[in-house]
């Protein structure tokens, strides 16, 4: 859990397929579709405040949130 406080990569899974265009809105995170109509946001997050910022944007859109997980750099790419 070395990424829990400081900078690190995160994977955020959402219910519903989000268009690529949302990449800019989510501050440069990559957006990839996953099976079952799921969208995965992946990217670097500088700290907890930035992570909460991303989650707030998810909340603003009303997209259901499935999971948030710290990952190793570039994992899954």
């Amino acid at each position: 859990m070395s990424t829990a406080q400081g900078p690190g990569w995160y994977e955020i899974r959402l219910q519903g397929r989000l268009d690529e265009r949302w990449a800019a809105w989510f501050d440069g995170m990559t957006i990839e579709p996953a099976p079952g109509g799921v969208t995965v946001l992946r990217g670097p997050v500088v700290d907890q405040a930035a992570l909460h910022g991303v989650l707030a944007r998810v909340h603003d859109l009303g997209v259901p949130l499935i999971s948030v997980k710290p990952t190793g750099e570039d994992s899954g790419r």
Binding site: R21, D60, L61
Partner: peptide, 17 residues
């Protein structure tokens, strides 16, 4: 409307950042 405003801004950011 808050929700639609977000979507419009996402379109703007994508098309003409």
């Amino acid at each position: 409307h808050h929700l639609f405003g977000h979507v419009l801004r996402a379109h703007l950011l994508q098309e003409r950042p």
